[in-house]
């Protein structure tokens, strides 16, 4: 997970910019990011998080960066939420509160 290799995700950033990550859950190795508007992002990761992992930062998303190994959500607070990806593509999917597809990679 190298921040230097991360590039702004030009397709996803405008979709979720301004939404707030309200909660993060896990379904096995899949991270579930729940946004304040009811949308949910599923991110396939290589493995579930360790039990002693520190709490992930929440807040309003300013931008999304991505590399072949990880996706990062830059938050309004100045912090960044980084999540490793199971593979370079085909790991991220976003659906709105009604279940309609908004984004997939």
């Amino acid at each position: 997970m190298t921040a230097a290799r991360m590039h702004r995700n030009q397709k996803l950033t405008p979709v979720i910019k301004g939404r707030s990550i309200a909660q993060i859950g896990w379904d096995g190795a899949t991270a579930l990011l729940h946004f304040d508007d009811g949308s949910v992002m599923r991110i396939h990761t290589p493995a579930p998080p360790p039990k002693n992992a520190p709490p992930a930062p929440l807040g309003k998303v300013l931008a999304v960066r991505q590399s072949t190994e990880a996706i990062a959500f830059d938050l309004e607070s100045g912090s960044s939420l980084q999540i490793p990806l199971a593979e370079a593509t085909s790991s991220v999917m976003l659906r709105d509160s009604k279940g309609a597809l908004e984004y997939a990679d």
Partner: peptide, 13 residues
């Protein structure tokens, strides 16, 4: 417009 919601394949891939 479905396919426009899917990210382009990165050059690295």
């Amino acid at each position: 417009g479905y396919s426009k919601k899917v990210r382009n394949v990165p050059i690295a891939v």
